[in-house]
Amino acid sequence: MNKKNLNILQVENLEMHFVQKNKRIKAINDVSFYVHKGETFGFVGESGCGKSATCKTILRLLPENGEVVRGSILYNGINLLEQSEKQMRKIRGKEIGMIFQEPMTALNPVLKIKEQMYEQFLGSDMTEQQKHDKAIEMLRLVGIPSPETRLNEYIHQYSGGMRQRAMIAVTLAAEPKLLLADEPTTALDVTIQDQIIRLIEALKEKLGMSMILITHDLGVVSEMCDRVAVMYAGSIVEMADTQTLFAYPRHPYTEGLMQSLPKDNGERGKLNPIQGMPPDLSRLEEGCSFFPRCKYASKVCGTTVPQLREIAQEHWVGCHHAEHMEHAIGLICLEDAQHREGRT
């Protein structure tokens, strides 16, 4: 894949299984992607498609039964899968930070926000005063009023939106170069979600971070992501820049996702949901994992797993019929002729 030196993260052929007593759950199947410096890369897909598992694998935060079968995760050229636990501890937080969906479970309920913030400065030679100032600055940055008193409070004393802000402040206090955000706004109301989205965007710019955003909401993708990968049953099925993906979906699953959403313009036609349900990852059958639900499936789909192919510049699709998916309807319409020419 191109522009190697511009990529902060490069994941190649990653495969991860959860091993249970009598079965293997293939959570990640041959996933390859890269994140450019400074961009927001989105993972979108339904629950259980492996988007969170991918992020946890990057940080090596998998539970004990999570087994990386093959692949490499290059962060600035270092393969994270080959690092010792001690070296990983230096990378987590400092280099790669992570924010979670539920701040109540991600932050420690018996430690004050202050103490959790100070943990981020472990190993640095900051004085007590500097730490204090930095912590106050972070809380102010994320828009928490009267940070001096809030610093000495516990997470349960914060309201929902404030909790999410506090977690962002704690994570960003270490000034990570890459931020993994796992459904950061899913549990929030739209108005608070809007505030948090703008906050993350502003901080990303200010600190010059790159970001991987996990979400199931195409609206959030459209608001935040530069490029996006659609995941299904542990594999990336389509990857492109956000506008291209929204205008020219080329994988039947991507099209299905978009057709399942009520439109912005209030159109009341019948929705066209994808039929059936996602497959059981411990019993993946031969061929394309979307085959049983796909309305365009042909014989080859049931026998051969489609590889992710570049059908236009930086537009990758894992479908045997990608070239014949011109009829797929996206969410937006680009009249820009140049854009279309550039693709052929």
């Binding site: 309201s159 939106g161 404030m162 109301d189 739209v190 108005t191 608070i192 979600q193 809007d194 505030q195 989205i197 703008r198 906050l199 909401d217 195409l218 609206g219 959030v220 993708v221 459209s222 608001e223 992501c225 956000t242 506008q243 929204f246 959403l261 439109k263 912005d264 969410l331 937006i332």
Partner: peptide
């Protein structure tokens, strides 16, 4: 109006720069 504006649009070209929402419930 605030609710409508805060609702993420499905069109990446209509991306907003600033949040119009102030304060919490």
């Amino acid at each position: 109006q605030i609710l409508m504006q805060a609702n993420p649009s499905l069109d990446p070209r209509l991306r907003k720069k600033n949040s119009l929402v102030e304060g919490e419930l």
